[in-house]
């Protein structure tokens, strides 16, 4: 339950908006829900709806409209490569293809270990530092600019190690 787990954060978020406009908090609350699993499930949507006094359908509409929210489980880390025009002019398409080939997946797919999803995205406002991508995970979003396939693979290796360490830690608890 979000309301219990993130009581403090929810209050902080709601305080940003006028009391009669709680609905504005739907996007930040969805980020909160997505942190855990890298996707938002129906229960979370229903709970957010309850907090904001709107219907679950209205929450689901938001999830569907905005591309940073996921309704389904994919990888724990989403590597989102900008392949828009300026980046493509600097080789972003080839970068992503090679990266995918090295990971043995196609764009949009998730690696066999279920950790890494590589997907093309629209402009990330870093056109001068292409090829670049962002990594979206439970921890948030970070940019990785001026990348090569090798540097990206090194990062992925690091992410896998982190995940393994985290799993190990969790299993001890």
């Amino acid at each position: 339950m979000l309301a219990e787990k993130y009581a403090q954060e929810i209050q902080t978020i709601l305080a940003k908006y006028p009391p009669d406009q709680r609905r504005s908090a739907v996007m930040p609350l969805l980020y909160l829900a997505q942190r855990d699993k890298m996707y938002v499930n129906r229960e979370d949507m229903a709970e957010i709806a309850e907090i904001l006094g709107i219907t679950p359908t209205e929450v689901a509409s938001i999830v569907g409209f905005y591309s940073l929210y996921y309704e389904e489980q994919k990888g724990k880390y989403h590597i989102q490569v900008c392949t828009d025009l300026p980046c493509a002019l600097r080789g972003a398409d080839r970068f992503m293809q090679e990266l995918c080939a090295r990971l043995n997946i196609r764009p949009g797919e998730t690696t066999a270990d279920g950790l890494i999803t590589v997907e093309p995205v629209m402009c990330l406002a870093a056109c001068d530092k292409a090829p670049m991508f962002q990594v979206q995970s439970g921890a948030g979003l970070s940019y990785y600019e001026n990348q090569t396939v090798e540097s990206a693979l090194a990062l992925i290796e690091q992410l896998r190690l982190d995940a393994a360490r985290k799993r190990g830690r969790d299993s001890h608890v």
């Binding site: 940003k16 908006y17 406009q21 609905r23 504005s24 908090a25 739907v26 996007m27 930040p28 969805l30 980020y31 904001l52 709107i54 209205e58 509409s61 938001i62 409209f65 905005y66 591309s67 940073l68 929210y69 995205v121 629209m122 402009c123």
Partner: peptide, 27 residues
């Protein structure tokens, strides 16, 4: 002053879509 994060929609750069989005609706 408050910050508010969008969630991946170019259209929200259009000012009225941005306002809709800020109100918690489709952009």
């Amino acid at each position: 002053i408050y910050t508010h994060l969008g969630a991946g929609a170019y259209i929200c750069g259009e000012e009225t879509a941005l306002l809709e989005s800020l109100e918690g609706k489709l952009g």
